[in-house]
Amino acid sequence: MPDAAGCWGPEPGADAVVKAAWDALAGVMDPEIPVLSIVDLGIVRAVSADEDGRLSVALTPTYSGCPATGVIVLEAETALARARLDARVSVVIAPPWTTDWISDSGREKLAEVGIVPPPHSGKRSLTAPDEVIACPRCGSEDTRQISRFGSTACKALHACNACLEPFDVFKCH
């Protein structure tokens, strides 16, 4: 059953090998936003084991053209192999990833490093020029968007008019 973020995590009483896989994947950091694990980011969609104990792991990239997808798959396979788990990792693009799948812990980690996390339920408009986004450094709401494209494709670049610091804002999907 999916959790509040839409992720298919281990259910209570889940097989130990499935839990071990989730634990291994929680140590795989996103290469573009290395404060987040791929579990925090919500791209680990499902982990299941067949009757022979072979694991299937489904990953959904943040968007279908994400340049980090190949690296993420390789890192997930490596982490599972290090944990001595026999697993097949596949990329699943439907349903498409949404920022609603970022865990609460992931949102906190983004904020801690100065990246404005997306709101729950994806209600932030990608194009709304009147939207007020507070500066993650000083809290001022006197901010502006500099570019719809930030340090990665999933972020926009903003700046604070009060403290003059630039900052990333995670786009909603």
Results as ranks from 00 to 15, higher is better:
L55G: 06
A83K: 00
K109V: 11
S64N: 14
L59K: 00
E108Q: 14
S103T: 15
K109D: 11
E75K: 13
W101E: 05
L80P: 11
R88L: 13
R54L: 04
E75M: 09
I72L: 03
V89H: 08
L110N: 04
A68T: 09
I93S: 07
T98Q: 03
L110R: 07
L74R: 15
R88I: 08
A68L: 09
L59E: 06
A68I: 02
A68E: 11
A87T: 06
A58E: 05
W101D: 08
V73A: 12
G70W: 09
I102Q: 07
L74Q: 14
L55N: 01
A81G: 08
T60W: 03
T60F: 02
R82Q: 10
V57K: 05
G70I: 05
P95F: 03
V89N: 08
G65E: 11
G65V: 10
R88H: 12
T98P: 05
W97H: 06
L80E: 12
I102C: 04
A87I: 06
C66V: 04
I93R: 15
R84W: 12
P67M: 08
R84Y: 09
A58V: 00
P61I: 04
W101I: 11
L85N: 03
R88P: 07
V92D: 09
T78M: 10
A94L: 12
P67G: 07
R88A: 07
T60I: 00
P95D: 06
C66A: 00
A111C: 06
L55M: 00
P95G: 05
A83Q: 01
I72T: 11
